[in-house]
């Protein structure tokens, strides 16, 4: 069983739930940007939720199946078609040998996830099948898919069946404008009180450069810094710091103009100050933001962030319970 890539889409990559444990040596987590959507797609086709699927961004690929199997598409609304006929999302469906899965124009969100019963069976690298394109690591030859690629698929579990569907209330919707909850901190003291206020009250827009490494935003007022004498090792720009670790979700604002939220393919360290970090529960949400979409940063405290993470885990458990029955 294999999948032939007829056309690759914009930047379709093999992703699972990531490669934890190597960030300290500069290798990021990678994996699906919208983890909940990939997990749901996998459960729909009877896979373990951490199996490897395909992450599709903005524009879908065209894929041909070489054997009958079960498939599901979740995440952002990039409407799938089987042999040209629209098919349901957040639901499992059967494909025959020679069937072609293609996609219509993006309607909402930004990333769709394709799970195939048995999972995409590319080699495991450092514990994961996820593609880290910047490091040419994992996935299919360490890169995004290209026309002519053939992806091996693993053996389907006995739980794989068509017609399984995730109930509406368990499918996450994107809000517009998006509200990204963030924990102010790290180098928040570097900016003026006034700058902190408008950072949180301004409406930002997703910049077209936003990608798996970082989501860039623009359109808010430039940030004013508290005057200082640059410490040894920091550059002269007021947004420079002595090199530090960059957490996932951290919000750096180079030169005080365009905030960048580091995402699953984050660089692990560098010399830009950070105003804080987007909370874990809202990282999936970022994955579904299109260029030019409005977004706001909402400051929360640690108990709120932890409660939100608990809610996220409860939601994941509800999806699991609903689909594994």
């Amino acid at each position: 069983m294999a999948i032939k890539v007829v056309s690759p889409g914009l930047s379709t990559t093999v992703q699972d739930l990531g490669r934890p444990g190597y960030y300290h040596i500069g290798i990021p987590l990678s994996g699906a940007m919208d983890r909940a959507a990939l997990a749901a797609a996998n459960l729909l086709v009877g896979n373990d939720e951490s199996a490897a699927g395909l992450e599709v961004v903005f524009m879908g690929p065209e894929l041909e199946f070489t054997a009958p199997t079960i498939v599901a598409v979740t995440g952002g609304e990039i409407p799938p078609k089987l042999n040209g006929t629209p098919c349901e999302t957040w639901a499992s469906f059967a494909v025959k040998s020679g069937d072609v899965l293609s996609f219509d124009f993006l309607k909402a969100g930004a990333r769709a996830y394709i799970a195939i019963a048995g999972g995409v069976d590319v080699p495991v690298v450092l514990g994961s099948r996820s593609t880290y394109t910047l490091g040419a690591l994992g996935g299919h030859e360490g890169r995004k898919l290209m026309a002519g690629d053939v992806l091996p698929v693993g053996v389907a579990s006995s739980k794989a069946r068509a017609g399984r569907s995730l109930e509406q209330k368990l499918r996450r919707k994107t809000s517009n404008p998006a509200e990204l909850r963030m924990l102010p901190g790290l180098y928040w003291h570097r900016i003026t009180e006034e700058a902190g206020k408008h950072f949180l009250s301004d409406t930002w827009k997703v910049a077209p450069e936003a990608d798996r490494i970082g989501y860039r935003f623009r359109g808010g007022k430039p940030i004013d810094f508290v005057p200082r004498t640059p410490p040894f090792g920091a550059g002269s720009d007021p947004s420079n710091i002595v090199d530090a670790c960059y957490p996932y979700g951290s919000i750096q604002v180079p030169s005080g103009t365009e905030p960048i939220v580091l995402h699953r393919d984050a660089v692990s360290g560098g010399g830009y100050f950070m105003v804080g970090a987007v909370i874990a529960a809202d990282m999936d949400l970022i994955a579904q933001l299109q260029p030019h979409m409005p977004a706001r940063f909402v400051a929360v405290d640690m108990p709120t962030a932890l409660a939100a993470r608990k809610d996220m885990n409860a939601q994941a458990a509800a999806v699991r319970a609903s689909l594994q029955s």
């Binding site: 914009l10 903005f58 524009m59 124009f105 993006l106 077209p208 260029p291 030019h292």
Partner: peptide
């Protein structure tokens, strides 16, 4: 002719 992608034209 429709844009296949979101972005800048």
């Amino acid at each position: 002719i429709l844009s296949p992608l979101p972005g800048t034209f």
